[in-house]
């Protein structure tokens, strides 16, 4: 019994710092967002209770293109899981097998994460400019004709969404690669050797020995990739997608409503949707990875 009470106290003591941070800085804004989301409010004037009006509006009106925003975020999440992560995994496996200059490659490929997003954004703007690198490359390959593709145009002739997605996928390959590389490396060498002796090919070893033992790492990567996609903001905003553009994502819509349009209620409602969605995905991913245990 005595052990039990001291345990309770020590649990509290150990959890306290995290709980204070969590409730003070993270939960409170979340609660306030939930509260504000039920109002029409410009942030400084009177608040008008409108129930779920903001939620209704964002899914029915064109002025807050939340449906498109969510679609873009889900597309990004899908591409992130479908392209970025396999690429990272491929690189990690390749490096993990032992290649000359392994550590050099590992460090280089992590660099884009360390370089300021402003620089990355500027670089891609230069790549996308009408008479720029990308159009010239496509032209020399015979993919486009006389007319330039206007990558960063927001209209129906532009490719803004694609232009925003490409660098976002590219920039974080190294981030996931580093995580996964660690996973690859921590597979006991004896396991691999055993499989090899049994006559498995390199690919079979990866497929049946290495990848299954990396499940936890993969889970974390998928969670980071999906929640990161749902919250994406920086690069889109730097490449010009920060208004209600054709590349709008929930975060840009949130900023736009909250600080350009002075609609704190609507901005909060968007935040609520984002939180619910991220959490739902995190739970879902946990569930999917657990099921196969």
């Amino acid at each position: 019994m005595k052990r039990k009470t001291t345990d309770t106290i020590s649990i509290i003591v150990f959890l306290l710092p995290a709980l204070i941070l969590f409730f003070g800085i993270l939960v409170l804004p979340m609660v306030l967002s939930g509260y504000y989301s039920l109002f029409e409010w410009n942030g400084v004037g009177d608040m008008k209770f409108i129930n779920f009006g903001n939620f209704k509006e964002m899914f029915t009106s064109d002025l807050v293109p939340m449906k498109a925003g969510l679609l873009h975020a889900l597309l990004l999440a899908g591409l992130s899981v479908g392209i970025q992560l396999p690429l990272s995994l491929g690189l990690a496996l390749m490096l993990g097998r032992g290649i000359k200059g392994e550590r050099f490659f590992l460090s280089i490929n992590f660099l884009p994460v360390l370089i300021s997003t402003v620089v990355i954004g500027k670089l891609w703007s230069a790549i996308y400019t009408p008479k720029g690198m990308l159009n010239n490359l496509l032209r020399s390959l015979g993919i486009i004709g006389e007319k330039n593709i206007l990558w960063t145009n927001d209209g129906k002739n532009g490719k803004l969404l694609l232009a925003c997605i490409i660098p976002m996928l590219w920039q974080y390959v190294g981030y996931h690669m580093l995580l996964m590389y660690a996973g690859v490396k921590s597979v006991a060498p004896e396991l691999r050797e055993a499989a090899k002796i049994d006559g498995a090919t390199t690919w079979q070893v990866d497929r049946h020995v290495v990848i299954p033992s990396m499940k936890q790492v993969l889970k974390v990567s998928v969670i980071f990739a999906v929640t990161g996609s749902l919250k994406a903001y920086d690069l889109i905003s730097i490449l010009g997608g920060n208004k209600n553009s054709s590349a709008a994502v929930p975060s840009t819509l949130l900023m736009n409503q909250m600080f350009d349009a002075n609609r704190v209620g609507m901005g909060s409602a968007i935040a609520v949707i984002m939180i619910i969605l991220c959490f739902a995905f995190a739970v879902l991913i946990n569930f999917l990875f657990r099921e196969r245990d």
Binding site: T8, I12, L16, F23, V27, L28
Partner: peptide, 21 residues
């Protein structure tokens, strides 16, 4: 145990809410 934890959560909430009262 449960009670203490619940109290703790409430205290944390109140503290942070009071801060912006």
């Amino acid at each position: 145990m449960k009670k203490i934890l619940a109290t703790l959560l409430v205290v944390a909430m109140v503290l942070s809410l009071a801060a912006c009262g």
